[in-house]
Design a protein around this nucleic acid. Structure first.
Lengths: 190, 190
DNA sequence: TCCTTCGATGACAGCATCTGTTGTCATCGA
DNA sequence: TCGATGACAACAGATGCTGTCATCGAAGGA
């Protein structure tokens, strides 16, 4: 018989999500979260470096994208490799339901939105050297990653709205939209 | 004779920048900044909502970009309007010297980098409705703004490195680079 | 000249986040 | 059986940030 319940970290994460949903991020203290998980405030900080991080632990998405990009066909354009990785990523992680709960909580708190942006930037920072290993110069790699993220954001937002389309379909569609945006079709006077 | 020295906010900003350069962001306390500016800690929070904001006060850039976009020629593509605004913006504000100091301090602290990203996101959020007033649908507007920001980041980074080129030149050049990236030129086997 | 009002600031108290340190108990392996 | 390790609690403390009230000087009118 173990002295402590197992999965302390998971218990903290679930308790935090529920408390944030119920009372908001700012109005729930770390001590409350820890108590709800049967731990002390100090133990919380053993698992998470700060209060916000309880919603952002783990970087499976980053690892997945980096791995996919590095494993991609060398004949592919850097942008193609990134978009292919993005297209298959979001369906793998995050059961849609908790993804929606998390998104709502994050959108409701500026502090959490801030951290969310930072996590996206971390993914971008990890993707740049991955492209470098494919022979892309760093400045260019950063640029391509930024463009891929712009496409990914538009595609993901559509994916959350209309549930019938595949993410990779929407990514391809958005990439085509980018082409039109950059080189607009000839305007005909009507 | 005024009871207090004038420009308390400016004194706080200058003192903060110097202390951050000297000791780092985390290792300088709000009380230190206030003391260096001849004020108390409490007064600091009257001017800035939090410690990080002392480096980010004012949103002249956001206001400028929004104004430029709204005043742009209606015949211009949304992306063209954004890029034209960006091309003329960064030279107007920020004497290059303090911009470099600020950038170095921000890059040295994760907390400040986080806030910096957030400020960029705020500018993006302000630009989306500005494009909306030009008749662009919101989702699309967000996308175009993200792309413009990607271009702007690459161009600005080049502008800081090579000092001889104009920002607007670099923006145009980077936009061309985007065209090639999206629709890569036909590869010839050598 | 006196008085009133007003705005900027100081002084102080208080809560929350986050850190360092130490002690305690189970579990594991020798 | 014993020492090492790991998981946690307990306590103390620095710092960020907020609420509240007193204070001082300036500006303006009577």
């Amino acid at each position: 018989m173990p002295r402590w319940e197992s999965d302390a970290q998971g218990r903290l994460e679930r308790a935090a999500l529920e408390l944030f949903e119920k009372h908001g991020f700012e109005r729930t203290s770390v001590a409350q979260i820890a108590r709800a998980a049967g731990l002390t405030e100090r133990s919380f900080y053993r698992y998470f470096p700060d209060k916000r991080e309880v919603l952002f632990a783990g970087n499976e998405l980053e690892a997945y994208l980096v791995a996919e990009v590095e494993a991609a066909d060398p004949d592919r354009t850097p942008l193609e490799a990134l978009l292919a990785a993005v297209g298959t990523a979001d369906e793998i992680f995050h059961p849609r339901e908790t993804l929606l709960r998390r998104t709502a909580v994050i959108a409701a708190s500026p502090a959490l939105a801030e951290r969310d942006l930072n996590k996206l930037a971390d993914i971008a920072d990890a993707l740049v050297p991955a492209l470098g290993r494919r022979g892309v110069e760093p400045g260019k790699a950063r640029f391509v990653v930024d463009v891929a993220i712009a496409i990914s954001r538009r595609a993901t937002s559509r994916w959350l709205a209309e549930q019938d389309a595949t993410l990779s379909e929407l990514v391809a569609q958005t990439a085509a939209e980018l082409c039109e945006t950059v080189t607009p079709p000839v305007r005909t006077v009507r």
